[in-house]
């Protein structure tokens, strides 16, 4: 495989559905971590709830809209359940409770007794026709692109279009929110909760609003992933998914409006490039090793970013320097 086609494949993933769905999920996390300073390390739990909401609804024969409704309603309930007890406490508690509850959700979905509802470890498959996600597509059947590698099918294009469209809508909505006095309070809480409290802000309520809203955006991303894949399985919703989203948020610039989008595109480009390179070395790298090396690169990247460029691509250096108090 030529280096050019490796680049083309990486770009395809980056601007394709993968990139878009990560951008959407990361937008929610950015509201939590970037703007409010909430240490939500179980964001994948919100995605899971959105995904299973959609899949289970489709399995019951309900429409996509009901699926979105169920997924988002469940994410709001989850946000309130986790937020009300823990947002009063120090951030460490939130970190541990969120990561634990995301794991609980995954294990419950995976467990044999849950099979009638979630399909257990096999998940729920062959939903594509029931979901009818691709039915409204106006894109004529065929493939579109340049050359042999940078090619999208009509279905891929449709999924991209819908997902990036939603990313844009959500981002503009968040842009309006974080630039309002409401967003100003969130930033104040991120900087110093006690100061915000001393100025008469009901800190817990603001945190809860941010937590639930960001969680619902995560659920939306989860539902879209199911729409695109036509199936759901429990193996996907593991803690490293959340960590990848952190990498996306920080890479793009935590607490910036367009950061999650830039972060998601760059993240997937780099990761897929690494994959392409690993598969085309002069010696063989097994698939499991390649996967592990990819994740190791992500881990090292996350550390290096935090240490050497915490403001990410879009954040301002000056603002970051200010964070040292």
């Amino acid at each position: 495989m030529s280096w050019l086609s490796i680049l083309a494949l990486a770009l395809q993933t980056a601007i394709g559905f993968q990139g878009a769905s990560y951008a959407l999920a990361a937008a929610g996390l950015n509201l939590h971590f970037g703007y409010t300073g909430l240490s939500n390390f179980g964001h994948v739990g919100f995605l899971l709830v959105g995904a299973y909401g959609m899949a289970i609804s489709a399995d019951q024969g309900w429409s996509i809209w009901v699926g979105f409704g169920v997924g988002i309603a469940a994410s709001v309930v989850l946000g309130l359940l986790l937020g009300i007890p823990t947002l009063r406490l120090r951030g460490d508690y939130l970190a541990i409770v969120t990561i634990a509850s995301a794991e609980i959700l995954r294990l419950v979905a995976n467990a044999r007794p849950s099979e009638p509802l979630t399909g257990g470890s096999r998940g729920i498959g062959s939903l594509t026709s029931r979901l009818g996600f691709f039915d409204p597509s106006f894109i004529p059947e065929g493939t579109y692109g340049v050359g042999k590698s940078f090619v999208f099918t009509d279905r891929q294009l449709w999924a991209m279009l819908v997902c990036w469209g939603l990313v844009l809508v959500v981002t503009l909505l968040l842009r309006g929110l974080v630039r309002s006095p409401w967003g100003r309070v969130l930033r104040a809480i991120r900087e110093d909760e006690d100061a915000a409290r001393a100025l008469g802000k009901n800190v817990v309520v603001f945190k809860l609003q941010s937590f639930v809203l960001g969680g619902a955006i995560g659920a939306l991303a989860g539902a879209l992933i199911v729409l695109n894949a036509g199936s759901v399985s429990p193996t996907r919703w593991i803690a490293p998914f959340t960590f990848a989203l952190y990498t996306v948020v920080i890479l793009g610039g935590a607490g910036t409006v367009w950061g999650p989008i830039v972060g998601a595109v760059v993240y997937w480009f780099v990761l897929d490039l690494a994959d392409g390179v690993l598969n085309n070395l002069w010696f063989d790298v097994s698939d499991t090793s390649a996967g592990a090396i990819r994740l190791a690169i992500m881990g090292v990247g996350l550390m290096a970013l935090m240490v050497f460029r915490p403001q990410g691509i879009l954040g301002s250096k000056k603002e970051m320097l200010a964070s040292g108090r």
Partner: peptide
């Protein structure tokens, strides 16, 4: 988290 992910893999 980054360290954990890197080392584990």
């Amino acid at each position: 988290i980054g360290l954990s992910t890197a080392v584990r893999n």
